[in-house]
Simulated assay, not measured.
Amino acid sequence: MADSQRTSEPLNFVHQDEIWKAHIKAEKDSAKVWPSKWGFLTEVYKEHERESVKLKEKSRVEPPRHHASRPLTPPEKQEQVGPSPPVPQTTQGFIGWRSAHPHLQLEKYGMVHHGRRSFLKELDWPLNACI
């Protein structure tokens, strides 16, 4: 690639052809020698394929019932989404406008009650230790 961009030096086409012939000869020679050096890999691969086909045939069993797909939920039992309230006119009213309505709140199942914990109290350190 870099040789084709050089325009100051003339190309020696005969030399390039000889290099190409040497590459082709090396490819052909290595293709002849490959079965004697690496031919055992083909047998190992064929054995592996046969074993994997046997294992696939053995493993073809029915999945347990708890892995089967569930039937679709009928539309009348699905969660119903009501219409949204009108969009407020101001940006101040836009903040939290949907959560102001009880039927649109995210906490459907009640407030989350986790106790507040302090890392310092867990380590029995004084509260002003990290100031």
Rank of each mutant, 00 (worst) to 15 (best):
T7V: 05
E9I: 12
E57W: 02
E57N: 09
R6T: 02
L106T: 15
H103E: 14
W125A: 09
S59K: 10
P71L: 05
A26K: 07
R50E: 05
E47Q: 07
T90K: 03
H103R: 12
P74G: 01
R6M: 09
P35H: 01
L106E: 08
L127V: 07
K58H: 09
G39Q: 01
K54N: 06
T73D: 09
P35A: 04
A31I: 14
E122D: 13
P86C: 00
S59I: 04
P88K: 03
T7P: 00
G93A: 00
M111I: 15
P64N: 02
A2R: 12
P63H: 03
T7H: 04
H103F: 14
D17T: 15
F94K: 09
M1K: 05
A22R: 11
L72Y: 08
T90N: 06
T91E: 06
P86N: 04
Q78V: 05
A26C: 04
R116V: 13
V81L: 14
E47A: 13
Y109D: 15
K54P: 00
K121H: 10
R6Q: 08
S118K: 08
V33Q: 13
H67W: 11
P74I: 00
F94R: 04
A129F: 02
F40M: 04
T73G: 04
C130N: 10
K46Y: 01
G115F: 08
L55G: 05
H23I: 12
S36T: 07
W125L: 13
P75C: 02
T7C: 01
Q16C: 07
V14W: 02
D17G: 15
V87R: 07
G96V: 06
F13M: 05
K58S: 06
V33F: 13
K58T: 11
D29C: 05
E43D: 12
E76Q: 08
K56F: 05
A68W: 08
V14R: 10
P64G: 01
P88R: 02
P75G: 02
I95P: 00
K77G: 00
E47L: 14
Q16S: 10
Q5Y: 05
D29A: 09
S99H: 06
S52F: 03
V87A: 03
P63I: 03
D17E: 11
Q80K: 14
S69K: 03
P102I: 05
H113I: 14
V87S: 00
H66A: 02
R65I: 11
F94A: 08
Q78Y: 01
L72K: 13
H15K: 15
E47V: 11
E76L: 01
V61S: 13
S30E: 06
L55I: 07
H48C: 11
A26N: 05
A22T: 01
